[in-house]
Amino acid sequence: MGRYVLRRLLQLIPVFVGTTFLIYWLVWAVPGDPFAGKCGERRCPDAYIDKMTELYSLDQPLPVQYFKYMSNLLQGDFGTTFGGQDVGALIAAAYPNTAKLAVVALLVEALIGLTAGVLSGLRRNGFLDNLVLVSTLFLLALPTFVTGFLLQWFLGVKLGVIRPTVSAEANFSELIVPGFVLGSISLAYVARLARTSIAENRRSDYVRTAIAKGLPMRRVVGIHLLRNSLIPVVTYLGTDLGALMGGAIVTEGIFQINGIGRTAYRAIVTKEGGTVVSVVVILVLVYLFMNLLIDLLYAALDPRIRYE
């Protein structure tokens, strides 16, 4: 187990260097001088362009630029935006909000999705099963921004039961609706995955044996059936958490949440190459660790899986 983790951690290093270099190269290779559009409908003064080019070492060869960037990064310096703000501080302010939103979305997915999936899987073709199938189909068909705008308008503007946007503090109570919007599509997947998995395992030998032994139904479902049926669902939730941690551009935008997705999107639009790279570096790290965590979680769920 320990060796496996160590090997995985070592593998992260080349992946990390490779992805960050690619991103660095791509971001600055995007066509269009980053400073060409900064002065509106007129050419920027040479003085301004010269100063910015020098500040971001854009006049140097790419490997040199990258090396400079990485050596600063390793010392904890994420660089500054064109406006002079510290990128590290921007990320530090945005990340907790994204994490909070991801947790809310994941809870929504797990609680609603799993309950619906288990109940409908146990009683296939019943009324509840059909209801779950139809409503999840409905959720799957709606893009996030439709659900988002609809709920914002209906609950926020029309009924006035929630604030249409999330405040700077981003309390958990404010994040319930955005979390539901963000998790809605995954919720449908989780429900359907759980339903199929439960329905399949319901007929397997070990469940029949457990019933024949005379175990109470609650124990059969809760211990024997659920644990084995959860593996695909946990895999899905795990990768989804990785994706959620990467920020939600659409949801964060609609509900005005100061998260990492919005920060990245803004940086891309304003051609803040340095900010984009720094945000993505963090995302790469988060994603790599999430994947490792999920792989380790398998072993805990399924004793047949062992890591050497």
């Binding site: 308008w153 503007v157 006035g160 946007t165 609609i254 005005q256």
Partner: peptide, 16 residues
């Protein structure tokens, strides 16, 4: 500081 004017417009209508 808004990123989307639709969010600001919803806030405006809701009194925020």
């Amino acid at each position: 500081l808004y990123q989307q004017d639709s969010a600001a417009y919803a806030d405006l209508q809701a009194g925020n």
